[in-house]
Every structure is written in C-alpha cells, then in structure tokens.
Amino acid sequence: MRLTQGTFSFLPDLSDDQISNQIEYCLENGWAVSVEYTDDPHPRNTYWEMFGNPMFDLRDAAGVMKEVSAARTTFPNHYIKVNAFDATRGVESLRLSFIVNRPDPEPGFGLVRQEVDGRAIRYTIRAYATDQPEGERYQ
C-alpha cells in the first residue's frame, strides 16, 4: 500500500533537491514552512506531531532541509511531511503539504463495516499500524 496523502504522492519519492526546490517556492511566496511526523496516518488524523514550530522569515530552503533531515534521523520509519502555511487574509491555511518520508512497508488500512438499518452501513477506517502502541508501529 502507498499512502497517497499530500501533493506529490503519485510521483516517485522526491529527491532532496526536488524537496528543496519546493521549499524555495514556498519561501518565495512568503509562506511559513513546517515539518510534521506521525505513525498514525489515518485520513482524518489532522494533527500530526510538530517537529518544532513553523519556521517564519526564512530566506533559504537549507534551514528547512536541516529540519527535514533531523526529523528523518529521529523518526526514520515514520511518515514525515512538509507543510507551507500562508497567512494571507482569506487563506490563513496550508498552501502546500507533501510527504518526504514514509515507513517501509506501509501496512495501510482496513475497512470496518457495521451493518445498520435499511441496508445502510457505518464505515470505520482503521490503520493496521495502530494495533501497536504509539512509537512501536513501524519497526
């Protein structure tokens, strides 16, 4: 299974140069860039752990790349993503978000069905990885 959240998940994994180019694009637009990681990639898990605060006022991608590589060193088997935040009025949200590290293999998700009235079904998506406690999921 390949988790396809994020802007570039259908492309081959980005090289560091490609990641750096995307970060440059974000910085040129004045967006704050941040790094987040998780071992619970459920599609509704909005709050991945922050690897430090968002980085404001950076001029060069090298600073973010340092954080990316530090995050990879600390969490080599977690999902790690780079987010870019735009504080422009009327946006005030992410403008780019892409995965830069993933576990191998990626176990994926199961679908739990609860049959209820009138043939209707209540669906629950469950990550196989979250059978294990946090921190022991992708060994």
């Binding site: 060069d60 090298a62 600073g63």
Partner: peptide, 14 residues
Amino acid sequence: APRTKEVVKRAMGG
C-alpha cells in the same frame, strides 16, 4: 538551542 537554531535557519543562504 531553539533560539540559536532559529536565527541560524533565518540566516541560511546569506
């Protein structure tokens, strides 16, 4: 450490 690292990151490229 976070303060110094933040300054260093802002200065990168310059």
